[in-house]
Write a protein that binds this DNA or RNA. Structure first.
Lengths: 237, 237
DNA sequence: GCGTGCCAAATTGTATACAAAATCTCTATT
DNA sequence: AATAGAGATTTTGTATACAATTTGGCACGC
């Protein structure tokens, strides 16, 4: 069962994904990376050349990304990268707050001992990166912590929904850069809900994680509105 | 049968949507209606003939439905209507509970006077349909009430997520038929959270709606597991 | 000078032909 | 008889050609 007969090398031919699948991955990365900025039009043929695929798999990929909310499809008028609208982001954060609460509650109930240990390790890593001032590494670890808690909840529906919104929020955060004060505050909040999680206190963990989410939303939205305001002003002047 | 290929006649005052869009609507209806039962394979060409479209728009429609969770796409192996797995449904209900709580809370905060009046009207209609024993009409009104509350929350992200899961749950409910006792209980719960909503008591409304969701989940899952058990037994004998 | 209608260019929507992968079937061998 | 394997068949994945729709520009009329 596990010995491929004509297997030639170990590295190469594990599995070849479809072009559509890799187009989705490629485009998603381009959007989250900021290479395709929010609001930019997405002409099909141009992207086809860039990705080296024909329009058929590309169009199917665009439908997938539209379902994730990363692009908007206007019939007969092409696709645009979904603009980062503070109002929409605020709405997403509201839902995220509810999802994080649920995730923390379920994680306390369903997480394994090993998973809690790994969570502690990630938390230590986060603290070290904060102390060292490694912003990029910090935010990646931060994302991994939250995703890990969601995974501990053992709920596929929650996981899928969460990661979709997380991608949207990531885009917003890349535009909004919050200050050192908020960073310190955020670290303190992590300490708080981690304590609750360690003691398997579902209610407290849920409440603290929700509060953390709410405060993050406030900071991101404040910075976002400020930046958008400046951008609008620059456009006029 | 009703859409000849060369139909050029004025189908409507306004222009029709794209074939892909109507294919999505058609397929979604077929799945929710039970015409395409859970677990059934979905050969592309056969559906093309049935819907009168070519494979291109159909495949794009399948991607959309896959994102909604109504079909599963296995690379190179075709699509199947997502099976109704009690474990998955239970997970969805858990998320739904959190979403309903949020919806009730936000509805109290953001709903307009006119919307609350309409909500009352829907509730009265629900009560009348219960008294008359009109099960089908009742469950449609029931869905409209919940969707209405979600709409009152003024949160597009919530609305989209909610309706996706609602579709999944609808499929499960059509398989599971709960009894008269649960019906009466459900009606009483509606009375309860409606009272809280009328007085704009966000916390109580949220809690009661969550409890209603939880009890509905219990009833549906119980019936579902029972039915699945019977089906499995029938398969053996 | 400005608005209106129509034509041309570009872009998206759809159909179809072809390539690649998986499944099925039948045969040959142990 | 059971099983492995090689072809045949079916089904999905991709490219491309063509049709339909939108958009931009230009001439014409007010």
């Amino acid at each position: 069962m596990d010995t491929p007969k004509t297997a030639k090398a170990a590295t190469g031919p594990i599995r070849r994904a479809t072009l559509q699948h890799s187009a989705v991955a490629e485009l998603r990365a381009m959007i989250l990376e900021g290479e395709l900025p929010p609001g930019s039009r997405v002409p099909e043929v141009q992207l086809c050349e860039q990705l080296g695929v024909s329009r058929t798999p590309l169009r199917e990929a665009l439908r997938v990304l539209a379902a994730e909310g990363l692009v908007e499809l206007r019939p007969h008028r092409g696709a645009v990268v979904t603009p980062v609208d503070p109002t929409d982001i605020a709405a997403i954060f509201q839902v995220m707050e509810a999802l994080e609460t649920l995730a923390a509650t379920l994680a306390c109930r369903n997480g394994t001992e090993a998973e809690f240990i790994e969570l502690d390790r990630l938390h230590d890593q986060l603290m070290a990166q904060h102390k060292a001032g490694e912003r990029a590494a910090y935010s990646m670890t931060n994302r991994r912590i939250h995703a890990w808690i969601v995974a501990m909840a053992r709920n596929p529906a929650l996981e899928t929904t969460y990661s979709g919104f997380a991608a949207q929020i990531l885009r917003a955060r890349s535009l909004a850069n919050y200050d050192a004060d908020r960073w310190q505050e955020s670290v303190d909040e992590h300490d708080g809900f981690m304590a609750a999680l360690r003691s398997r206190d579902a209610a407290t963990a849920g409440a603290l994680l929700a509060e953390h989410s709410r405060r993050t939303a406030d900071a991101v939205l404040r910075s976002l509105r400020q930046r958008m305001g400046k951008a609008a002003a620059a456009e006029v002047g």
